[in-house]
Write a protein that binds this DNA or RNA. Structure first.
Lengths: 130, 130
DNA sequence: CTAAAACCTGACGTTGACGTCAAAGGCAGC
DNA sequence: GCTGCCTTTGACGTCAACGTCAGGTTTTAG
């Protein structure tokens, strides 16, 4: 696969892929003319990178985790690190859940206060995800 | 309360509080000499601001939501907006939960592969939160 | 062969929530 | 009035994950 294919398949820009390579997160074979070529697992790797970015990790942290994430092989230290990041994600989920519940409470209270609002709006919101 | 008191109580910097005021997220009374003074609810408001930042909202979005969040009074439009943000937080929680579960799977698999690792390390991780 | 599309490196630009420093004014204890 | 801490405005610095543009090369479609 060439860089554009991987980018399309993973839903990121080619710039992002070059950035990942620059950060040591992604490697590529080069054709004689210098063009990048990737194996099929590159897409899964990029999806992992995105997921870990979304979880609040930065490039350096991901660099430390990706080897064992991708290969399944990890040293004790790596596992400790993995568990620590998992705990951080857990805490993040808890905080977000609290915020979500409080928002829910406010929404419900406001709907009680107001004349039933327009419930069709909520159905529209649920449909227009993206 | 003066700005330093609010900052300490809410766990943020005074710079952050001035920034919130600059963004229209937080108001303050001024003493004749120009120093800021806050009511007790300022701390709760700041905690809300932090929670919404942590949920991925930016200053502009928070500006639109804070009035109804804090007072409980909301127009139909505000409620729609609130519900939309709640849905986004939901999606974020789902993504994070997926990532967390996959990390868990990797950790378990690596522990099976390795000789039981050192389980004391995990207890240490659980204790050193912060 | 040609034109278009994709790719390359290199480098500067962007954004947002602050950090940090400077220079000056205000407030409490002594 | 001195000392020391807190506060003020103003303005530049930061950091990370890219966006974007420039100028050139390579691959592909017809």
């Amino acid at each position: 696969m060439r860089i554009g294919d991987v980018a399309a398949a993973a839903g990121v820009s080619t710039r992002a892929l070059r950035y990942y390579e620059e950060q040591g997160l992604l490697t590529s074979e080069r054709s004689p003319s210098g063009q990048r070529h990737y194996g099929d697992d590159a897409v899964r790797r990029v999806r992992w990178i995105q997921a870990l970015y979304a979880a609040g990790l930065n490039s350096k942290a991901i660099t430390g985790l990706l080897p064992c994430v991708h290969t399944g092989v990890a040293t004790d230290e790596m596992i400790t690190h993995l568990a620590a990041e998992r705990d951080r994600i857990d805490a993040q989920i808890r905080d977000l859940t609290t915020t979500r519940e409080r928002l829910d409470g406010i929404i419900d209270a406001a709907r009680d206060r107001n004349p039933e609002c327009d419930l069709s709006a909520e159905a529209a919101t649920a449909g227009s995800a993206g």
